[in-house]
């Protein structure tokens, strides 16, 4: 029997690898979405631990407070889809060490918090891997403005952005809006990974 579209998608995604920098409201939700979609491998990087204040938007649960985000997310990914091969780096991404963990990723997701860290990451990773697609997000804070969220593309850099959003220094981040960005990042990753495959 000929392979169906779904079989082809499953086979292609099972061979794909996505790197996620930062495991907060963006990264934890991107990871779970891609795990459920059947991604073969995830490279996840964060140095932080789960705090109670994270639970309003991040893909962790009450019993995981105090755990390293890398360990907690590995548990949650395994609960959602045990087939995913996860490589976790409990590491702070700082200028000079940002690109290394992602050398084997097919697509890289920027899911960091501070604007300066986002900018440094995009610069370093784009220079290190000019041919790898990099999907960034900006403007996740606040509860207004989901209708403004748009995708900007420049070469291999994709930015999902609410360009009128406040900084998270001034406004809280909540699950619905940051989740929208995270799922858009994950969906775009699938679209890029499945380019050339008849998916519809």
């Amino acid at each position: 029997m000929a392979n169906t579209n779904k079989d082809r998608i499953v086979a292609k995604l099972a061979k794909a690898s996505v790197g996620i920098a930062g495991l907060g409201g963006l990264g934890s939700n991107v990871a779970i979405a891609l795990a459920r979609a059947g991604i073969g491998r995830l490279l996840i990087v964060d140095f932080d631990t789960v705090e109670k204040s994270n639970l309003n938007r991040q893909a962790y649960s009450v019993d995981q407070v105090g755990m390293r985000k890398t360990e907690a997310l590995m548990q949650n990914i395994a609960r959602a889809n045990p087939e995913v091969n996860v490589t976790a780096y409990c590491q702070k991404l700082e200028t000079g060490n940002m690109a290394e963990a992602f050398s084997s990723a097919d697509v890289i997701i920027e899911a960091l918090d501070a604007a300066a860290t986002k900018a440094a990451f995009i610069e370093e990773v784009s220079l290190a891997y000019p041919s790898k697609p990099l999907i960034a997000a900006s403007g996740v804070a606040g509860i207004r403005g989901v209708e403004r969220v748009a995708l900007k593309k420049s070469g291999n850099l994709y930015l999902i952005q609410d360009d009128m959003a406040p900084s998270s220094d001034d406004s809280a981040v909540f699950a619905p809006k940051v989740g929208l960005f995270a799922h858009w990042q994950a969906s775009l990753a699938l679209e890029i990974l499945l380019e050339g495959t008849d998916v519809d």
Partner: peptide, 27 residues
């Protein structure tokens, strides 16, 4: 992509196509 360290020295050539994306904190 232009590294930040070059912003003060990198001169813009005639005919350049430039994109400027701004980033806000939150993630």
């Amino acid at each position: 992509i232009i590294p930040k360290a070059q912003y003060d020295v990198r001169k813009i050539k005639d005919g350049s196509v430039i994109s400027v994306l701004h980033l806000e904190s939150g993630g």
